[in-house]
Design a protein around this nucleic acid. Structure first.
Lengths: 212, 212
DNA sequence: CCTACCGATCGGTAGG
DNA sequence: CCTACCGATCGGTAGG
């Protein structure tokens, strides 16, 4: 996961001071979410981490929900930007771009931040429609990128086939978070499993719809 | 997910009345976890659902942590029992057993209960070592079953290869929870995606380590 | 941006 | 001494 950046138009009107404070609050919120989970997240803990009073924090973010929604908006937008950069290396073939992009996503889920942040999002999405929409938006963008690269490797495939393949690959990758992620039991095998997974994804894309 | 059953030896000494009460408490806890998530789970809500006082609830389970740990112990043990039954149909070939077992696990994650319960577990596992151990135990058992069926289809493979394949398949399956699960955006495509996934798993197991 | 609060609810325990 | 509970309340914290 990259550092948070306030690129969204909503934040362009803020004074520099206020934008810095907003960023500090969002970073504190994200690290609390990573360390203690949503169940352990409170306005008071965020305020304390920023050396603020609760009253002051609510001046920036009226409710706990607002704070979380804005954090996800900022964090998840940046997340696909990273993938987009990796996948856009024009010195590589389409197949290499696909392999490198999928490898990047899998490497990222080994980090402590991602291993802890994303399961929290998945759980929150089941109980908060706004979070659900933000998470779904993230994966729509991720699958859109994978879809484009599949089209380069397999220009013969229709849109439906590409969408299905991108969905499968995206789901298969994300599932590894809970197995080979940071502090997980199978983390020591991450190198081998990532190789197996990426190889499998490439074979699948290359051979989909062709008779063996 | 199956209904909860108190088969564990710890519960064999209880009177019938007390065992029924324990089961009622565990069921209430599970449905609250599914409906509101761990952040919305409280001893008071569990007690209210069982028409009990909080004082009485703590007679059965001293702390909220105890309650959650016992619930997971009971629920997750039953979960692999179901998979074991499906995979043990002796009228089928090894390949058919594998296909049917994987299909069963994927169909199960379309249900509201599983779609909501498991992401909650994954998030809790990141913040509670006991939960982490229980979740890891579940997937060890699941991958053990998949491993056995891989061995039937590919008796030539070594233990390491089988383990790696079982881990990949298990991770790829679980990842679909957040995409094609109940109330998720891609749920309408679940039939096609499950077919693609199971087909991919079978191809992978059949062809692993063989030159194309 | 702070002080001083609110209604309610939290997990857990008291004596009987 | 054990079981299965009760009404009431503990010290603190929740979002606002």
């Amino acid at each position: 996961m990259r550092k948070l950046k306030l690129t969204h138009p909503d934040f362009q009107d803020l004074t520099e001071q206020k934008a810095a404070k907003v960023l500090e609050i969002l970073e504190a919120t994200q690290s609390l979410l990573i360390e203690e989970g949503y169940a352990g997240l409170s306005m008071r803990k965020v305020a304390a981490r920023c050396n603020m009073t609760v009253g002051n924090l609510t001046y920036y973010f009226a409710t706990k929900q607002d704070l979380v929604h804005v954090l996800l908006d900022v964090a998840l937008e940046g997340y696909t930007d990273d993938i987009r950069e990796i996948m856009a290396d024009s010195s590589l073939t389409g197949e290499q771009q696909l392999a490198q992009g999928l490898e990047f996503i899998m490497q990222d889920l080994l980090t402590r931040e991602t291993t802890r942040f994303f399961p929290e999002l998945w759980a929150m999405a089941n109980h908060d429609p706004v979070v659900n929409g933000e998470v779904q938006g993230l994966y729509d963008r991720e699958q859109g990128l994978i879809n484009q690269l599949i089209a380069k490797v397999r220009p013969d495939l229709g849109a439906d086939d590409r969408k299905k393949l991108a969905l499968y690959i995206s789901a298969a990758i994300e599932g590894h978070t809970i197995f080979i992620g940071h502090d997980k039991g199978w983390n020591s095998k991450s190198r081998e499993v990532i190789d197996l997974a990426v190889q499998n994804f490439l074979d699948l894309v290359r051979n989909w719809g062709k008779s063996a």
